[in-house]
Amino acid sequence: MALVTSDNHGLRLAARYATLSLVALIFLFPLVFMVVSSLKPDQQLLADTSSIRAFLPVGDISLDNYVKAFERAPIGRFMANSVFVTVTTVLMSILLCSLAAFSFVFLDWTGRGALLSVIVATLIIPFETIAVPLLLLVSKLPWIGLEGLETGWLNTYRVQIIPWIADALTIFLFVQFFKDLPRELIEAARVEGASWLTIYRRIVMPLSGPVVATAAILKSLTMYNNQYLWPLIVVQDEAHRPVMVGLGYFFQLQIAWGEVMAYLTLISVPVIAFYLVLQRAFISSIASTGVKG
């Protein structure tokens, strides 16, 4: 009897892993294609795309494309810029958006519903449609820096960070998550005289591991991967350019596909690393959310 069950169990386990792996294949193949291609000379890379060889590191394999990619563009600089802009924006975004969401869910104040609707409505506005008005706006905005008052935000890091801090998706993400937190906890703390800031810091945020991790991952992706049009129009000097604008360096008349793949592989590393780190936060937070309910 016991034997059969264990066999069954083993089979079911195998089936589970088989399903997981099959699905993994579907999601993995472009990445494999990208990494493998980055090791091949252009001619072979293109010839291989039509067969299974596209996914195999076979033939003339080398790191030449990486060497050439570094010669073509200041990749280190672009990545440092992108990482800096992304990390700063994500941190500020988590702070300001969770504060706002906290207020929308737990506090009761005049204008709350209307304001939340307005915020959700901004989700609809594709960035492409406001790029030009926004450009005109930031080119005239004042700023107080080390050298006193200046006008215009072009060619800075702040122009790549500040407009992106608050976004409806992150606020919305926190709102939906906070709605599931037990209100009794908050009200009990209120009865005991805790300030709103204390409740936010000591009760709500410690319970919000999963949503903070989720928001950070999603926000960092938008910041790192999709920042193309905006930096293109507000940043003219090379020193401030992010990775997606840097991609343009590789699209000459004859595209050096091997170098493109090498560049893509390189710039994907920080995001994947970031995801792996946050994944831990994701897991460890399961225990804490178990408190509720």
Partner: peptide
């Protein structure tokens, strides 16, 4: 949970 001042204060920076 009623507090206009805290409500606006928390929501304002983001908004």
């Amino acid at each position: 949970t009623r507090s206009n001042r805290a409500g606006w204060l928390f929501a304002l920076p983001g908004f």
